[in-house]
């Protein structure tokens, strides 16, 4: 499947605004639903932050982001060459425990799960990781008559 749009960035938090702009400008299929588009932007922001901070851990690296519309869904693939890590296997934090007793990690994946319809992880064939974020495109119902 060929991507409708593609972006490669270096693993630097300073590029997060470039990533957000890329999703905002290319996820046209979600344009009719601003809430869905905003949720997808946030999910991608969280996932890319996770790769930069916990995957590459400050080491140089790159992240490829591709976006395509398929079968009524917006699909974003994030590929990196960081050590293998499956964020979908991470446990959800207890969001009802006292604020200061909570561990500082785990919130990003919790928010990401909340923002998308599907989150799919595949280890790369030659190392690295691929994370797929899927957001269903809900269109306004057709008018009758």
């Amino acid at each position: 499947m060929s991507a409708d749009a593609f972006l490669r960035i270096s693993a630097d938090l300073g590029n997060l605004d470039v990533v957000r702009r890329f999703v905002r400008e290319n996820a046209a299929g979600l344009g009719q639903n601003p809430d869905a588009l905003q949720a997808l932007i946030q999910a991608v922001d969280e996932s890319v932050t996770n790769i930069i901070v916990h995957g590459y851990r400050g080491q140089p690296g790159s992240i490829e982001i591709s976006l395509e519309e398929a079968e009524g869904c917006m699909v974003i693939r994030l590929r990196d060459e960081a050590p293998t890590f499956d964020p979908t296997a991470a446990p959800s934090p207890d969001v009802t425990s006292p604020l200061e007793q909570r561990p500082l990690g785990g919130l990003g994946i919790h928010l990401t799960r909340h923002m998308v319809d599907e989150l799919i992880y595949c280890p790369g064939p030659a190392g690295g990781n691929e994370l797929r974020l899927v957001k269903r495109i809900s269109r306004p119902p057709d008018r009758e008559g």
């Binding site: 909570r102 500082l104 919130l107």
Partner: peptide
């Protein structure tokens, strides 16, 4: 602030703890 990422929430958590 159009939205808050988890990194922003962690900042709130740190400030909450430091102020308490």
């Amino acid at each position: 602030v159009p939205y808050i990422a988890s990194a922003g929430l962690r900042a709130f958590q740190e400030l909450f703890t430091a102020l308490r």
